[in-house]
């Protein structure tokens, strides 16, 4: 009896380290930040907690431009990553053959160099006197005074580049799981390539699409490195604002309030997206596994 009770308690006991970790490094700081976001004052006069909800309304009205830009850039980058990543994942999964693992490694290899260094090197690549700009000017794609760096293009391209692997890996995982006989069944039932892709492959890879878009969109919306290094204040995203509020202006309440607003908006978008694209796909695979 006692042994059985102990056995029943074991799974919960195993949760303790994880829960503890979450409590100390996630829940407590989050609560602290919530507390911080409702304070009033300046760094010189000190901050007092007095339920200062205007921090939220002010943050939202002062920085709505950066909020919108964050979601716009993150959305564009996610879209581009999907457009670039899907064919790549498809080829690796279905045509990779014995090169599969090598190709997957190639997708991950950029991670071996830190994020910051990679973004800095893009700054060099896209610079006004750089090889790429020069070539594009010579061919006439870029006008004489035209720039690549410090534009919406460079920032969105940077984000796309940096988060592409997060798109490819889940896409690959879901494509790779598709039974090739499923596609043969599609061809057997008079489906042309296009039909089989749209009616069989794409729906079966939806879990990967949902996972990939979320894994790309969420960090992209909070990113500030790309806008900082590849853009100007005209391209600044909400991440840049939070970073400068915290580290430069030392306006902690506003920074904390911005963080919470970002979190809430992101949560809303994610839930909405998962509803639209996810339920069907996720339910489908859920039942399939049974």
């Amino acid at each position: 009896m006692a042994a059985r009770l102990r056995k029943a308690g074991l799974p919960y006991a195993l949760l303790i380290p994880g829960l503890g970790w979450l409590a100390i490094f996630f829940a407590i700081p989050l609560l602290y930040m919530l507390f911080e976001s409702l304070k009033q004052g300046t760094i010189d006069t000190g901050f007092i907690f007095n339920w200062e909800f205007s921090n939220y309304t002010n943050a939202l009205s002062d920085f709505s431009e950066q909020f919108l830009r964050s979601f716009e850039y993150a959305g564009l980058a996610t879209l581009f990553a999907l457009i670039i990543g899907y064919p790549l994942a498809y080829v690796i999964a279905f045509r990779g053959g014995r090169w599969r693992n090598a190709l997957l490694l190639a997708v991950i290899v950029p991670f071996f160099v830190t994020y910051l260094i990679r973004t800095l090197s893009w700054e060099t690549i896209l610079s006004d006197s750089g090889f790429v700009s020069d070539t594009l000017r010579t061919v006439g794609v870029l006008s004489e005074g035209g720039r690549l760096l410090d534009t919406t293009f460079s920032v969105v391209a940077g984000i796309t580049y940096n988060f592409l692997p997060f798109m490819i890996l889940p896409l690959y995982a879901s494509l790779e799981r598709i039974d090739p006989r499923m596609l043969e069944a599609g061809y057997d039932l008079y489906g042309r390539r296009r039909d089989v892709f749209l009616r069989v492959t794409l729906p079966l890879s939806m879990p990967g699409v949902v996972a990939g878009t979320l894994l790309t969109f969420i960090p992209a919306a909070g990113d500030f490195i790309n806008a900082e290094l590849l853009g100007t204040p005209n391209q600044y995203m909400i991440g840049n604002v939070i970073q400068s509020r915290y580290l430069e202006v030392a306006d902690y309440p506003t920074a904390a309030a911005l963080s919470f607003i970002l979190m809430a908006l992101m949560l809303a978008i994610v839930v909405l997206w998962a509803r639209v694209a996810g339920t069907e796909a996720l339910l489908g695979t859920e039942r399939e596994r049974r």
């Binding site: 039974d179 006989r181 499923m182 043969e184 069944a185 599609g186 061809y187 057997d188 039932l189 008079y190 489906g191 042309r192 009616r199 069989v200 729906p203 079966l204 939806m206 069907e280 796909a281 489908g284 695979t285 039942r287 399939e288």
Partner: peptide, 20 residues
């Protein structure tokens, strides 16, 4: 001729039904 232009249909081992 590719499979989709043949007047044959197949019952697959393990069926290969479309789960979605």
């Amino acid at each position: 001729r590719p499979a989709f232009r043949r007047s044959t249909n197949t019952v697959f081992q393990n069926y290969a039904l479309f789960p979605h």
